[in-house]
Measured scan of single mutants.
Amino acid sequence: NKASVVANQLIPINTALTLIMMKAEVVTPMGIPAEEIPKLVGMQVNRAVPLGTTLMPDKVKNYE
């Protein structure tokens, strides 16, 4: 099972992601793969992401 990116804290809307905000966890359904964490640093979320929520591609601005 592959790990996904999960919010390590509440991430407010329009916040630029940092390493400390994210952790890798095996979750269902799968979100953004954990190996993409370095790519996500500096990207902004387009909505608030509660603690423990899986980061889905549609929650990150300009994620492809």
Rank of each mutant, 00 (worst) to 15 (best):
N1W: 15
N1P: 14
N1D: 14
N1L: 15
N1Y: 14
N1K: 13
K2Q: 13
K2N: 12
K2E: 10
A3Y: 10
A3R: 11
A3L: 09
S4W: 05
S4A: 03
S4V: 01
S4M: 03
S4L: 03
S4T: 04
S4H: 04
V5A: 09
V5G: 01
V5F: 06
V5H: 04
V5R: 01
V5K: 01
V6I: 12
V6F: 06
V6T: 05
V6D: 02
V6N: 01
A7P: 01
A7E: 01
A7G: 03
A7S: 08
N8I: 08
N8C: 11
N8E: 04
N8S: 14
N8L: 08
N8H: 06
N8K: 11
Q9M: 14
Q9L: 10
Q9F: 08
L10N: 15
L10W: 13
L10P: 11
L10K: 07
L10V: 07
L10S: 12
L10I: 07
I11Q: 01
I11H: 01
I11S: 02
I11A: 01
I11T: 03
P12G: 05
P12A: 08
P12D: 06
P12F: 08
P12L: 09
P12W: 08
P12V: 07
I13V: 13
I13Y: 08
I13P: 11
I13Q: 11
N14M: 08
N14G: 10
N14C: 14
N14K: 06
N14Y: 11
T15I: 09
T15S: 09
T15P: 01
T15G: 03
T15Y: 07
T15W: 08
T15C: 09
A16C: 14
A16G: 07
A16W: 13
A16E: 11
A16Q: 12
L17V: 00
L17E: 00
L17C: 06
L17R: 00
T18L: 08
T18C: 08
T18S: 10
L19R: 11
L19V: 09
I20S: 13
I20K: 14
I20G: 12
I20E: 12
I20Y: 14
I20W: 11
M21S: 05
M21N: 10
M21E: 01
M21V: 05
M21P: 01
M21C: 07
M21I: 04
M21T: 03
M22F: 07
M22N: 00
M22D: 02
M22G: 04
K23R: 15
K23S: 09
K23W: 08
K23H: 06
K23A: 09
A24M: 07
A24H: 04
A24D: 05
A24R: 03
A24I: 08
A24K: 06
E25K: 14
E25D: 11
E25I: 10
E25N: 08
E25V: 13
E25H: 09
E25M: 15
E25P: 03
V26P: 05
V26G: 04
V26E: 08
V26D: 07
V26Y: 13
V27N: 00
V27A: 06
V27E: 00
V27K: 06
V27T: 09
V27G: 01
V27F: 02
V27Q: 00
T28E: 13
T28W: 14
T28S: 14
T28M: 13
T28P: 01
P29Y: 07
P29H: 04
P29T: 05
M30C: 14
M30P: 13
M30R: 12
G31R: 02
G31T: 04
G31H: 04
I32S: 02
I32G: 00
I32R: 06
I32F: 05
I32H: 03
I32K: 00
P33S: 10
P33Q: 06
P33E: 05
P33W: 08
P33A: 09
P33V: 04
A34Q: 04
A34C: 09
A34K: 02
A34S: 10
A34V: 05
A34T: 01
E35G: 11
E35H: 13
E35D: 13
E35R: 12
E35Y: 13
E36W: 10
E36A: 10
I37P: 02
I37Y: 00
P38Q: 09
P38I: 09
P38K: 09
P38R: 09
P38D: 09
K39H: 13
K39N: 13
K39G: 09
K39W: 13
K39R: 14
K39A: 11
K39I: 12
K39L: 12
L40S: 02
L40D: 01
L40P: 03
V41E: 03
V41Q: 04
V41L: 09
V41W: 00
G42I: 07
G42N: 04
G42F: 08
G42Y: 04
M43I: 04
M43Y: 10
M43R: 08
M43H: 09
Q44C: 13
Q44E: 13
Q44D: 03
V45P: 06
V45I: 05
V45A: 02
V45E: 04
V45W: 00
N46R: 10
N46F: 08
N46Y: 09
N46K: 11
N46H: 08
N46W: 12
N46L: 15
N46D: 07
R47A: 15
R47Q: 15
R47T: 15
R47D: 15
R47P: 06
R47L: 10
R47E: 15
A48F: 08
A48Q: 13
A48R: 11
V49R: 03
P50L: 09
P50R: 08
P50M: 09
P50H: 08
L51S: 13
G52T: 01
G52W: 05
G52Y: 04
G52I: 05
G52K: 01
G52Q: 00
T53F: 09
T53A: 15
T53G: 12
T53S: 13
T53M: 13
T53I: 07
T54A: 07
T54I: 07
L55M: 05
L55P: 03
L55I: 13
L55T: 01
L55E: 02
M56G: 07
M56R: 05
P57K: 06
P57R: 08
P57V: 04
P57Y: 09
D58P: 02
D58V: 03
D58C: 12
D58S: 10
D58T: 06
D58N: 11
D58E: 10
K59R: 15
K59C: 15
V60L: 12
V60S: 04
V60M: 05
V60N: 00
K61T: 11
K61W: 10
K61D: 08
K61S: 09
K61E: 08
K61H: 11
K61V: 14
K61N: 10
N62R: 08
N62I: 02
N62F: 11
Y63F: 07
Y63M: 01
Y63A: 01
Y63K: 01
E64A: 13
E64I: 15
E64P: 13
E64D: 12
E64G: 14
